[in-house]
């Protein structure tokens, strides 16, 4: 038996909108720790890891570990039927091939049940070790989204370089090239607008903008995004989900031929 009641149901709606472009089908894993997902895109270039901790739910019952395969477009279709202020409850019986999403209006005057068929998904689970990163950039998520969008009208790839001067996003294409530099900027009264750069050593990596743009669909979940870079590792683009967990996107770099 599984029963997870999320008062801020809009979080789940936003999570789905953030990942459904990248991943079509995925297993949601439910355990005593929380509700989680790990999935790669079809070309195995990017990986998304989601965690919604058990403590973040108003009610969290998960009698045994359960993995539920869902088509994310179908799940998004159902969650779009929930109001932004609705409480969402996810329910499943052991051994069942369906999951039920229950939507309750804040005044409790409307209750809806949407039952969705589960699917068998043979997915690979990767072990991601904790790493020390050469540079960690924290910046407003809306700013990062704007930069990725602007650069993708010029080129296909972005070079992200961190030096003590700041973080530079560069691209080039047929029509020309572009460089955007963001310097450290810690505004005490508006922490959500801060740009903070922690650099152990300078780092410069190249990534496909198509994926970066897809990651920025998570911007509505968090005012800030954290970008962790090391020369030998995929970049980690993390959006914290208010007191509940996170959504992390891992993207393998491009290298010179």
């Amino acid at each position: 038996m599984l029963e997870l009641r999320l008062v801020q149901g809009s979080l789940l709606k936003k999570v789905l909108e953030a990942i459904r472009e990248l991943v079509t089908d995925a297993n949601f894993d439910c355990s005593g720790t929380g509700f989680s997902l790990q999935a790669m895109d079809s070309s195995h270039v990017a990986l998304v890891a989601l965690l919604l901790r058990a403590e973040g739910f108003e009610h969290y019952r998960c009698d045994r570990n359960l993995s539920m395969g869902m088509n994310l477009n179908n799940m998004a279709k159902m969650l779009r039927c929930a109001g932004n202020d609705d409480i969402i409850t996810i329910k499943a019986d052991d051994g069942s091939d369906t999951v039920t999403f229950m939507f309750e209006s804040p005044k409790q005057d409307k209750i809806a049940d949407f039952e969705m068929k589960l699917m068998d998904i043979d997915s690979e689970h990767l072990g991601i070790p904790d790493s020390e990163y050469q540079a960690i950039v924290r910046m407003p998520s809306a700013e990062f989204m704007r930069i990725c969008k602007d650069l993708s009208s010029i080129g296909d790839t972005v070079i992200i370089s961190v030096t003590k001067e700041g973080v530079k996003f560069s691209t080039s294409g047929e029509i020309g090239s572009a460089n955007i530099v963001c310097r450290q900027n810690q505004t005490v009264d508006k922490p959500e607008e801060a740009t903070v750069i922690e650099m152990q050593e300078p780092v410069s990596l190249t990534f496909a903008l198509r994926y970066m743009n897809s990651f920025t669909k998570a911007s509505s979940l968090s005012d800030q995004v954290t970008i962790s870079l090391s020369s030998e590792l995929p970049v980690v683009v993390e959006y914290k989900i208010a007191e509940m967990g996170y959504i992390r996107f891992y993207l393998a770099p491009k290298i010179e031929e």
Binding site: V45, H125, L126, G127, P129, P234, Y250, A252, K254
Partner: peptide, 14 residues
């Protein structure tokens, strides 16, 4: 431009 690496080149299956 450049060769796109795969995420599985960095992280192994559990």
């Amino acid at each position: 431009s450049g060769v796109q690496l795969s995420i599985t080149e960095f992280y192994r299956s559990k």
